[in-house]
């Protein structure tokens, strides 16, 4: 189904305009000297970055809102910036996104019934793996060493030393 996503490489110009509009500060004309940081408030920007790194850009193939250059990602970053700037907490912003885009937007899936296996799975695997390991090691201790017959020993030696006449495969 050819859904037209927002990724419109041909239309990069619009993205430029949007981007410019987003960041347009009251124009301070500097001839030379210190460059102006894009972020008015670096502390806020850091929060925006770290939050949007955990949000999935829905139209992209698999990129976070922080990394993507897609217009929707730019819009969503602006939303995050605006809401955090207005004093909302990280959790409130995440709730805002989830209520509109669903859990899909989160790179860290919330813990709920349907994701219980996802979050507990590694632990279950670990316990299972270690349990199996312990059982195995215990039974090992009691198991007698493998005793090769003299014939087997000779065959193994022949194989290792590469004497094909002796090592001719026994048919199974």
């Amino acid at each position: 189904m050819p859904v037209d996503r927002f990724v419109r490489p041909l239309n990069a110009g619009i993205a430029v305009l949007l981007f410019a509009a987003l960041f347009s500060l009251p124009s301070v004309t500097l001839s030379a000297g210190e460059a102006t940081p894009v972020a008015e408030n670096p502390e806020l920007e850091a929060r925006v970055q770290s939050l949007s790194r955990n949000l999935r850009c829905l139209v992209c193939q698999n990129e976070s809102v922080a990394e993507s250059r897609a217009p929707l990602a730019v819009d969503l970053r602006a939303q995050v910036r605006e809401q955090l700037g207005a004093g909302k907490s990280e959790a409130e912003v995440v709730d805002f996104m989830v209520s509109r885009y669903g859990d899909f937007v989160l790179y860290r899936p919330p813990f709920k019934a349907s994701t219980a296996l996802l979050w507990l799975g590694p632990l279950v695997l670990l316990v299972g793996g270690l349990g199996w390991l312990l059982l195995r090691l215990r039974s090992r201790e009691q198991e007698p060493a493998l005793h090769l017959t003299e014939d087997e020993r000779r065959r193994a030696r022949a194989l290792l030393e590469g004497n094909p006449a002796d090592s001719e495969e026994q048919r199974s």
Binding site: G102, D103, F104, V105, Y107, R108, P109, L117, L118
Partner: peptide, 24 residues
């Protein structure tokens, strides 16, 4: 493997769509 395929499992069981990313 679990994290990589879990979205597929949920989708196949019609339990919703999720993303599993770096934080997980």
């Amino acid at each position: 493997l679990l994290g990589t395929l879990y979205p597929l499992f949920l989708d196949a069981l019609n339990l919703g769509k999720i993303s599993v990313g770096p934080p997980y």
